[in-house]
Simulated assay, not measured.
Amino acid sequence: MSQLWNFISMVWYQLTFKPQPLPDDIRLEGQTAIVTGSNVGLGFEAARELASHGLARLILAVRDPAKGEAAKTKIAREAPECDIQVWSLDQESWDSMATFAERARTELDRVDIVLLNAGLKRLEYTRSPTGHEAHVQTNHLGTALLSLLLAEPLRRTARQTRKPSRLTITASSVAFWAPINDVQKPKGGKGILAWLDDPASFVPGVSHYCLSKLLDIFWTRALAPRFDPKEVIVNTLNPGWCESSFHRADPQSERFSKYLAWSSAQGAYHLTDAAVRHPDSHGAYLSEQRIRPISGFISSAEGQKVQQKLWDETIAVILEECPKANIEEFTKST
């Protein structure tokens, strides 16, 4: 019943809500933003909108530098004053992520906005080069690692500017469609991540994608208390159902897009809204460009246990598999 209600709610807001761009009076002069997955789709449109509001420097963090350069050329036509740089980032490579974060720490004098948007969606089981299932690696572990490694430049900027920096993670309302038994009661006595990495856990279709977005929400809620909101505001968001090449592996989703989906630009309005507005939010889930309640399970006592378990498992994986990552402060209890 709850999944049916979640689906009806999604259809309702897709048909009745009109996403709005950032107001013209929001100006980002002097600021630096990092946007991952920014060569196409929502990431590209979000990067373009941020640049159009006077952003001083934009880092397009992309897996394919050639596609990043093409995106840079398009954005530069509309925001010629913005210093747009293309940086290589592969969330299926621990070394790539560690190198990227170290470059941000040492080469950028400030980092005001980090928008962690890169992700993937596949309907069949795929193993990442790291050995983890692809959704687990890219959508969760990669996002989690970057959120930790970019903490230092975000905090440093907040202290310089005397206003909070922003760390925003793209999730999705499909998180509430995820089969929660896979995180609440993993089979075979395995941990959450070990079970989701196991091919036996994979049901062909979108369930692992939905689960990865559930992990994003849990991670955001676990991460936020580890930041002072006076220094870094941490949120996650639902961009809605949007027309994008992101869904190219899901023909059924593409078929229905023409009836329900927003454009990529409209979806990106949610990303920029969450990354720039709502100054009093922290650890929040935003949908339809406002703070929204989360599912009862996530906020329940059982959900809290899953959240802590996911945090502990994720930190353990990073410590073991990415020795270059300096995340010592995040190994301490809050």
Rank of each mutant, 00 (worst) to 15 (best):
W5A: 05
S9I: 06
S9H: 14
T16H: 12
F17R: 06
Q20D: 01
L22D: 01
D24Y: 14
T32R: 03
T32K: 03
T36P: 10
A51Y: 15
A61L: 12
V62F: 13
V62C: 12
V62I: 08
R63I: 03
A66N: 09
A70T: 09
K72F: 13
D83C: 06
L89E: 13
M97R: 05
M97Q: 15
F100R: 09
E107Y: 10
L116M: 08
Q137D: 01
L145S: 02
L145D: 02
L150F: 05
A151N: 11
R155A: 01
L167C: 10
S172G: 07
V174T: 09
I180H: 14
D182H: 13
G191I: 08
W195F: 07
S201Y: 03
V203R: 14
Y209K: 03
D216Y: 07
I217L: 15
A222L: 03
P225R: 04
F227Y: 08
K230W: 03
K230F: 07
E231W: 11
V232R: 04
L237G: 01
G240C: 10
E243R: 12
E254V: 04
E254L: 12
H270V: 04
T272Q: 00
A275L: 13
V276T: 12
I298N: 12
S299V: 09
A301S: 11
V317R: 00
E320P: 11
A325M: 00
E328N: 00
